[in-house]
């Protein structure tokens, strides 16, 4: 496409959010540098998804300010925000009998007026993004016939079709086989966009991310480049696991070796 992807930075300062009386996030500061691939890490229940939702303005924060570039996310018109920030959530299901291409074309929603039809350009962008996730051959398939991993990749294509400068992904690889997981992360890494992705696989995060934020019990436990963040102490404190940090023989990036825990009988 002629569209040149360009990233924007995202900064969140002092974000606190409680949902139904439960404090999920407390005084979280996050910096996602322009053009970086930032990984959001943390154990189950540490507040990753909630933070991503807050950053994407799916709800009103109790406290804190979020900026995309130099604009306050919570003050931008929603449509304008959707042209700059695209979100892929973990579980986005539907009962509606849509075709794959229709789903991807939803990404054009913030770019078109209410009564405007989808143009040839819109379709071309959608098809191109489907090709990037390797699913162009399924363009006319029904959504319900896709596997979980395929659906996840279609959602990524839909988000890319929004032509955002910032991509927010909630565990984008959790349904993917290792080949498609690596391929997808490489694709977003080289997209030119700023990417913030919640990830569970720490070695994938170490291999692809240039910046990491680790959440623990609703607070930031560490942030920085992988080689600084991944220490045996942090992994013990946050995940409660014993691990050795090594370097990957081919890439030179950090690689974690986990020790099986002793199971009490």
């Amino acid at each position: 496409m002629t569209h040149l992807a360009e990233g924007e930075s995202l900064t969140a300062a002092d974000v606190s959010w409680s949902v139904d009386g439960q404090h999920i996030l407390a005084g979280v500061d996050v910096q996602v540098p322009t053009g970086s691939f930032t990984g959001l890490l943390g154990p189950n229940g540490s507040g990753k998804s909630t933070l991503l939702r807050g950053l994407a303005r799916l709800g009103k924060l109790d406290e804190g300010v979020v900026h995309i570039g130099s604009d306050n996310v919570h003050r931008l018109p929603r449509r304008a925000l959707a042209r700059r920030l695209a979100l892929v959530e973990q579980n986005s299901a539907t009962d509606i009998d849509l075709r794959v291409l229709d789903v991807v074309l939803l990404g054009r929603t913030p770019h078109r007026a209410a009564l405007q039809a989808d143009s040839a350009t819109d379709r071309a962008i959608a098809v191109h993004q489907l090709e990037r996730v390797d699913l162009a051959h399924l363009a006319h398939r029904r959504w319900s016939t896709l596997s979980g991993g395929e659906q996840q990749r279609v959602h990524l294509a839909r988000a890319m079709t929004q032509e955002p400068s910032l991509l927010v992904l909630d565990e984008p690889t959790n349904h993917l086989d290792v080949g498609h997981a690596l391929q997808l992360l490489a694709m977003v890494q080289h997209s030119g966009l700023t990417v913030l992705a919640a990830l569970h696989d720490l070695n994938l995060a170490a291999a692809f991310c240039d910046h990491l934020v680790v959440l623990h019990q609703g607070r930031v436990a560490a942030s920085g480049p992988p080689e600084q963040v991944f220490t045996a102490d942090l992994l013990a404190e946050v995940y409660g696991v014993e691990a050795d940090v090594d370097l990957h023989p081919r890439t030179g990036r950090p690689h974690l070796w986990f020790h099986p825990p002793m199971v009490p009988h």
């Binding site: 929603r78 509606i96 939803l106 929603t109 929004q162």
Partner: peptide, 13 residues
């Protein structure tokens, strides 16, 4: 189609 969160992230109030 994919619920209100997806609608909101697509720019719908």
């Amino acid at each position: 189609a994919f619920g209100e969160d997806t609608a909101a992230s697509l720019g719908i109030d």
